[in-house]
Design a protein around this nucleic acid. Structure first.
Lengths: 291, 291
DNA sequence: AACGATTTGTTCGTATGTATC
DNA sequence: TGATACATACGAACAAATCGT
């Protein structure tokens, strides 16, 4: 009833990692050394290492070695920016999303960066059709932005507006420059007011461009949060759709409902960067209250 | 500058899967057949298959074969159950969580099931200490529940209350039976009212018991949403903490802010079950708007 | 219940390629 | 450039799980 050899080796190494004997960032013995140590073939040792890799405990770098990964400190994003109280009806409409993002990041003492929006005119795809309730042939304006915090890639965001808005005079929508806040502009030009929105949050595997931008490992190990935020006007018609994705390994969402005391921000020490990409926490494996 | 052979094979198979040539549930050719077809060694074919497995496109079963996985239909959970309007202050306090869960699931025409709560008295761990603002030595009552929808495991939930509540007379908390709604009971007995809560949502790797209960693949491929819901009373003191976990492959969260039209529930056809565990969507790989 | 055929899982050996220092 | 370390690839053998006879 013995576990296969590669599992035994993997579990042994795992123990050394979780006990701290092999600390974060440490280089593991080379495959040859492990081969001698455990008396297994190099292929078996590699199977053990692969097992650790898929679980996010270590990372292998060609020509360099295998390294113990560490935990990254997640960034907290508020989905409701309602300081201690439910937002008043009027405040909801403003929707200065870039502004809100920048303000929140700075409130945590970190530096927000965002790219100039990349504007495209596209056919509405399935999700956009559903959320914006437009027909298959409909054109939409898409405004895409990359966001970073302290230099590390944080989110990709695309907002879709019906092309009709541009035709009715909101021409700034197709300019590749910041509109802050967008909703104020739309209200001014078109008389459109956003009175609420619906968020849908899922997790899915990262796409190719996300893997590249977020510098995620190229197996599907780390997914991305995908939030769909659909804004509505007084008559209940969808106004715009914002699709954002955030890597799950470095993000956390918060929202306050009702009356809640202000958030405590623990003082951040140096995050203790680990080699290459962000990495996922060994601690997560344990699973706390439920594991 | 060619891709490695195993990647070429994997991409070829992936194409056949995504084009539908190899439909959901189909058995792939055996490793021997693939070996002959591609003129590669069996180990190389196996590398290709592993690449597909890691990405959740196929599943291998010892002694049987390799099968194409399909997409599962995610269940939508509302984090704010506020039909069309912001909840009035008074309504927030009720917090009939089991009730809310059962009602929502039934509204989707599905069958909710939940286990009898398992009650334990524990030392507060790090998260409970932080969220409940209790000391290290403090005891807490933990009430744990398993939830299913239409028979499939949906979430694990544990709610922590300060032990002090029991000492002050809320003895039902340590009985292993449903208290519906809990907050009404606490208000009645202790005069404690919940006026708001804070949700924190993260994704982490599944723990051992979660992997078992949710029947997840045993590599860390599919993680779980972990939501921390901390309820507060009028004076801003934390009352209770609910830790829930939901597998990311079959769940989606929704929340409405401000005035939003009612949700449309698309009529559900047969989900098209795939072999073994729930499986993850091939479609997710593409990454829609951002990929 | 037993057995054989099929299919994936594990392990070894070996050789060569590629990335990094 | 050479040495080191991981990556890819092939071949081979046996183990373990599954299924039908």
């Amino acid at each position: 009833m013995l576990d296969p050899l590669y599992r035994q080796i993997a579990e042994d190494l795992r123990g050394k990692i979780e006990s701290g004997e092999l600390g974060q960032g440490t280089q593991l013995p080379t495959e040859i050394e492990l081969r001698e140590h455990y008396g297994a073939s190099r292929n078996t040792v590699r199977d053990a290492l692969r097992w650790l890799v898929t679980r996010g405990l270590v990372n292998t770098l060609p020509g360099q070695g295998t390294f113990v990964l560490g935990k990254v400190e997640p960034f907290l994003t508020s989905l409701l920016t309602a300081p201690n109280a439910l937002p008043a009806r009027q405040e909801i409409g403003l929707g200065g999303e870039t502004t809100a993002y920048a303000a929140e990041v700075q409130a945590h003492g970190r530096k927000p960066e965002y790219s100039v929006p990349r504007v495209e005119i596209q056919q509405a795809d399935a999700i956009v059709q559903t959320e914006l309730q437009v027909s298959e042939a409909a054109s939409v304006v898409s405004r895409h932005q990359q966001r970073r915090i302290d230099g590390t890639p944080y989110s990709l965001q695309t907002t879709f507006y019906p092309m009709e808005y541009v035709e009715r005079g909101a021409v700034k929508l197709i300019r590749s420059e910041d509109i802050r806040p967008v909703m104020a502009y739309l209200e001014e030009v078109l008389g459109i007011r956003q009175v609420g929105w619906r968020d849908k949050i899922t997790v899915r595997a990262a796409g190719a461009s996300e893997t590249a931008f977020f510098r995620l490992p190229d197996d599907g190990r780390i997914g991305v949060f995908e939030t769909l935020r659909t804004g509505y006007d007084e008559s209940g018609r969808p106004l715009r759709l914002t699709v954002s994705s955030y890597p799950t390994d470095r993000n956390q969402f918060v929202m306050d409902i009702g009356s809640v005391p202000p958030q405590i921000f623990p003082s951040r020490e140096k995050p203790g960067r680990s080699p290459t990409f962000g990495s996922v926490g060994a601690s997560g494996i344990a699973g706390r209250s439920h594991a």
